[in-house]
Design a binder for these strands. Structure first.
Lengths: 261, 261
DNA sequence: GCTTTAAGTATTATATAATGATACCTAATG
DNA sequence: CATTAGGTATCATTATATAATACTTAAAGC
């Protein structure tokens, strides 16, 4: 185990975090050996760390199956996050209003490296479970929110992003062609908003408008998801966009601390 | 530092978790020395652990102020939690329907020791920020959801809970009298639902119906919050309750694994 | 129903990796 | 400009995490 050679780096803590991060949508609960296999830690280490996490209330353990799973503490962490993010408090009441006015699903997304992360979701229609859950990370280039945010960056910066940020297919209609994505961001630069179709879910359409920080760079985006069966670009631009933009503008914070590198 | 004398307990990991848990609604970002003071760890330990958490992406660090705060990873943990909790997937579409039908705020709460924790929230009206955020823990006895769940337990068990579980005042009208709480749970045993008023927010009313596990014990509750200015008990019972109960019944799972101790 | 195998649990000697004291640096404050 | 608090870096010491191994339990195969 080549731990980072730094006396300010506590390997045991890092390994414990490895265990926590081993859980995701396709690893919902794990046995000791599954955890060991997935994290690459040996049996003993996994045992010790998992036990510690269990004792400390971070992992629940089914007494019957002896399998571990995330505890309620994981939700409490989201709670603490929300209070620490100045944008959420600003945005929440306005997002609620918006979703009520539109009667459609409204999301708040932030940029997290080259991905976006859904920070708040207000689902109004039945959808896939994944579309209702906060904390989901998606490649920024494949989302209307990501493109709308990128479009507020200096041109060389967003062009570099379009060239290099990751993409991966989610549906048969996910755009994998960077030229097409570039065109989409160009449009967003011009229009001040982005519309996408079928990127994450077949026939789902999304509109997003950036929330601008004091420097003019987007720090987040308000996004609205609708069904492609009942909506088209024109109707979205006419009926959804104005309210979406008002909301995003109303949220844009005066002072906003920058997230550390 | 008296660490628990067990070779299966990794102290460094536990201390790292202490740092994470130091953040809450009134500690949204902290400097190194604040963290040290709050966790009771010495300066060096705090430095090493916080640095590790930063390197591992669990804490953001403002380059200017050098203050730490929860990172987006905290939301990703909530994401993983949601997938691991079988109830949420079951409940989500039904909760969305309910909130749309009622036009009022709908919550899903689970029991977490002697507290309830809000697992899902679908706010429809402007409220206090705290009322819109998932992961919030509240004393079970002070909430309609907690009382509705308790009422499904064997009598000796819920009576013991009423006598011993913690209570604390949130508003001037929070019920601190255990006799009054006992009467409320008794009513819930009889009615199959609980209504409370002004427990957490002045003049806010809440109704809750239990979601029953296969053993007849509630594992969660569906709850609806409304304004006490426009609603009273009778109207809630007449207009909200039926749909609330249908929803809770529809969610009740066939197989539900029990959360580990 | 017995054997085999896999998974979880417990113990221990060993040395690595965490520790905390201290010294250094930086930037506020008076 | 002096003072001080807070953040950062270094290092000798040994406590603490480690990984091998043995033990226990439960499931799978015959």
């Amino acid at each position: 185990m080549k731990t980072k050679q730094n006396t300010l780096y506590v390997g045991s803590l890092a390994k414990g975090l490895r265990l926590l991060r081993a859980f995701d949508e396709s690893h919902r609960e794990m046995s000791l050996s599954e955890l060991a296999a997935r994290t690459g830690l040996d049996k003993s280490a996994t045992q010790r760390l998992a036990n510690t996490l269990h004792v400390e209330g971070m992992l629940d353990k089914d007494p019957g199956t002896r399998r571990f799973r995330p505890s309620h503490a994981w939700l409490e962490m989201a709670y603490a996050y929300y209070w620490s993010d100045p944008l959420v408090g600003q945005a929440m009441p306005k997002l609620i209003n918006l979703s009520q006015e539109l009667g459609e699903t409204v999301n708040l997304a932030e940029l997290s490296g080259d991905h976006i992360i859904y920070v708040s979701r207000l689902p109004c229609k039945r959808t896939y479970f994944a579309a209702t859950v906060i904390g989901r990370r998606l490649p920024a280039l494949s989302t209307s929110a990501g493109r709308a945010m990128l479009a507020t960056f200096p041109e060389d910066e967003w062009r570099a992003a379009v060239d290099h940020w990751p993409i991966k297919p989610f549906t048969p209609s996910t755009t994998l062609d960077r030229d097409a994505i570039r065109a989409s961001v160009e449009a967003a630069v011009h229009d001040g908003y982005a519309i996408s179709k079928g990127q994450m879910i077949l026939n789902e359409m999304a509109v997003a408008t950036p929330i601008l920080g004091p420097d003019g760079r987007a720090c987040a985006a308000v996004q609205c998801s609708v069904s492609g069966h009942t909506w088209d670009r024109d109707r979205i631009a006419a009926e959804i966009l104005p309210k979406l933009q008002d909301t995003a503008n109303a949220i844009s914070p005066s002072f906003l601390s920058h997230r550390g590198a």
